[in-house]
Amino acid sequence: MQPGDEERRGGESRSPAELPARQSPLALKVGRRDASEMALFQSVFSKDAPKPGQSRLRLMPDDGSDTFRSVRRGVAAFAEGAFAAIRNPNSHEAGLPELPEHLGVFSTLARWVDTAALAL
């Protein structure tokens, strides 16, 4: 953590992925600012049906197929892994040689959010 990080976070000492996803493209698309980025990915790609205030994102229509279930489960797992293994640890380091690959991971997540259909 850098000096001043706690002040910018309102005095909280949690990692960035644990903080509310206030203005992320995902939060804006689903209209939620009540959860961390990782928790929001888990929620919007949940197997549960949408509920009031908890919309879902779908990369393909839910046709009940194994493919639909695999894609939904894979996106949620990919996002959790990206935040846990890349974003959280690397938010505290500088000059990482694998940064281009890490940007590719988050670019993939951003594309999925951008192209996913909103299920209300």
Results as ranks from 00 to 15, higher is better:
Val75Asn: 12
Ala110Gly: 08
Leu40Val: 00
Ala79His: 12
Ser70Trp: 05
Arg111His: 06
Arg111Glu: 08
Leu59Phe: 02
Ser91Met: 00
Arg73Phe: 11
Ser65Leu: 05
Arg111Cys: 00
Arg58Asn: 08
Thr67Met: 09
Ala39Met: 03
Leu96Val: 09
Gly81His: 11
Arg58Met: 05
Arg87Glu: 10
Lys51Tyr: 00
Ala116Thr: 06
Leu109Trp: 04
Ser43Glu: 15
Asn90Val: 04
Lys47Trp: 00
Ala110Leu: 10
Leu59Gly: 11
Ala116Ile: 04
His102Trp: 12
Pro52Thr: 09
Ser70Ile: 04
Val75His: 11
Leu99Ala: 08
Asp62His: 11
Leu59Gln: 06
Asp62Gly: 10
Ala116Met: 04
Gly64Glu: 09
Ile86Val: 15
Thr115Phe: 00
Arg58Phe: 01
Ala82His: 06
Asn88Tyr: 01
Val113Asp: 01
Val105Pro: 05
Pro50Tyr: 02
Pro61Ala: 15
Ala110Ile: 02
Val44Ser: 08
Arg72Trp: 00
His92Ala: 12
Ala85His: 09
Arg73Tyr: 11
Arg69Met: 09
Ser65His: 06
Ser91Arg: 01
Arg58His: 11
Ala49Thr: 04
His92Thr: 10
Ala82Ser: 14
Arg73Ile: 04
Ala79Glu: 12
Phe106Asp: 01
Leu103Cys: 10
Gly64Phe: 08
Leu96Ile: 08
Ser107Pro: 00
Asp63Glu: 10
Ala94Glu: 05
Val113Ser: 02
Phe68Glu: 10
Phe41His: 15
Ala39Gln: 11
Lys51Gly: 06
Thr108Gln: 12
Ser70Asn: 14
Arg56Thr: 09
Arg56Met: 08
Phe78Leu: 15
Trp112Leu: 13
Asp66Phe: 02
Ala77Ile: 06
Glu98Ala: 09
Gly81Ile: 04
Phe41Tyr: 15
Leu109Pro: 01
Ser65Asn: 05
Gly95Asn: 09
Val71Thr: 14
Leu40Arg: 01
Gly64Gln: 11
Leu96Trp: 00
Ala77Tyr: 04
Asn90Met: 12
Gly53Cys: 00
Lys47Thr: 07
Ala82Met: 07
Asn90Gln: 13
Gly81Gln: 14
Thr108Leu: 14
Ser55Phe: 02
